[in-house]
Simulated scan of single mutants.
Amino acid sequence: MTSSGTEQSLRYLNRVVLITGGTKGIGEATVKLFVKNGANVVYCSKEEKAVDLEMALKESGPGTGTYIPCDVTKEDEIKRLIEVTVKTHGRIDCLINNAGWHPPDQTIDDTSAQEFHDLLNLNLIGYFLTAKYALPHLRKTQGNIINISSLVGIIGQKYAIPYVATKGAITAMTKAMAVDESQYNVRVNSISPGNIWTPLWEELSSHSANPEDMVLGGKDAQLLGRMGTADECAKAALYLAADGTFCTGIDLLLTGGAELNYGNKNQQKIIHH
């Protein structure tokens, strides 16, 4: 293939993409895919060293990957993240809000107000502030924002009230932001994954009484009989950024059909002692 043909096949060539929570799971896969498609990617995480990932990105190309430490619960660090991105690359074309956490099972009785506040700050306010400070630059490029939400924001989840609340809010905030930013031709969309096999899923299952049963249940929750992959999430994000140019305010369900059909959901069988 000629070099010009190669360039034409790169779906996000020379665009500048900022990805939070970019060192593992869905974030890492998304960083790699955008770099593979010619983007200059700036990615962050709270405290992980990303030397191995940076080296792999330099070798793979044809885009670039730059790691910046950032705790998205701290407004000043978010401001610095945006400033360094613009100073390095001169622009921002796409923001992918991905940094977040799913706590282990917790009932409302065992959840403190502070724990709820902390998760809101990480999962929701972090998205809001990163968007807030990126938007002046995205308006100049008529860029787009992709917020990683979750299916459970729509259907609920057992023993996860704070988490479900944050994800439901992300999906709703995406729609409100899409309305406001449309005047600048900035598109704002969300992706709601179902069960995706990531290090976080593996960690959560390891805390259960029977990890193998939990993983099998995770697979069986989808019509397709398996969990999704981080790569599939990355492909959905690339579609919304590069190809879904008439999509704004949508919530893309990436679920393998988990929300469809009836299932055994009777909670009355649970015996409370």
Rank of each mutant, 00 (worst) to 15 (best):
residue 181 E to V: 12
residue 227 M to S: 08
residue 135 L to P: 02
residue 226 R to D: 10
residue 233 C to M: 13
residue 186 V to I: 08
residue 160 A to R: 04
residue 153 G to R: 03
residue 229 T to Y: 06
residue 130 T to D: 10
residue 229 T to E: 14
residue 138 L to W: 10
residue 150 S to N: 05
residue 139 R to T: 09
residue 192 S to K: 02
residue 230 A to V: 07
residue 205 S to N: 15
residue 136 P to L: 06
residue 190 S to E: 03
residue 185 N to P: 04
residue 148 I to W: 04
residue 137 H to V: 00
residue 209 A to C: 03
residue 126 G to R: 01
residue 132 K to P: 04
residue 229 T to C: 11
residue 118 D to R: 09
residue 172 A to S: 15
residue 170 I to L: 06
residue 153 G to F: 07
residue 170 I to A: 08
residue 132 K to R: 13
residue 155 I to R: 05
residue 161 I to A: 15
residue 152 V to Q: 02
residue 221 A to I: 07
residue 222 Q to E: 09
residue 201 W to E: 15
residue 174 T to I: 00
residue 185 N to T: 08
residue 203 E to F: 01
residue 157 Q to W: 11
residue 146 I to T: 02
residue 118 D to G: 06
residue 164 V to P: 05
residue 161 I to R: 12
residue 185 N to L: 08
residue 132 K to I: 01
residue 142 Q to H: 14
residue 131 A to D: 09
residue 173 M to W: 04
residue 197 W to T: 05
residue 168 G to K: 03
residue 124 L to T: 06
residue 141 T to N: 08
residue 191 I to V: 02
residue 118 D to Q: 09
residue 165 A to D: 10
residue 228 G to E: 03
residue 163 Y to P: 02
residue 181 E to H: 10
residue 211 P to G: 12
residue 135 L to F: 05
residue 225 G to K: 03
residue 131 A to R: 01
residue 140 K to T: 08
residue 150 S to F: 06
residue 193 P to Y: 03
residue 203 E to M: 06
residue 172 A to N: 13
residue 139 R to F: 11
residue 233 C to N: 07
residue 149 S to T: 02
residue 204 L to N: 08
residue 202 E to D: 14
residue 125 I to V: 12
residue 179 V to G: 07
residue 174 T to Y: 04
residue 158 K to H: 15
residue 229 T to Q: 01
residue 216 L to G: 11
residue 174 T to R: 07
residue 147 N to S: 11
residue 232 E to I: 00
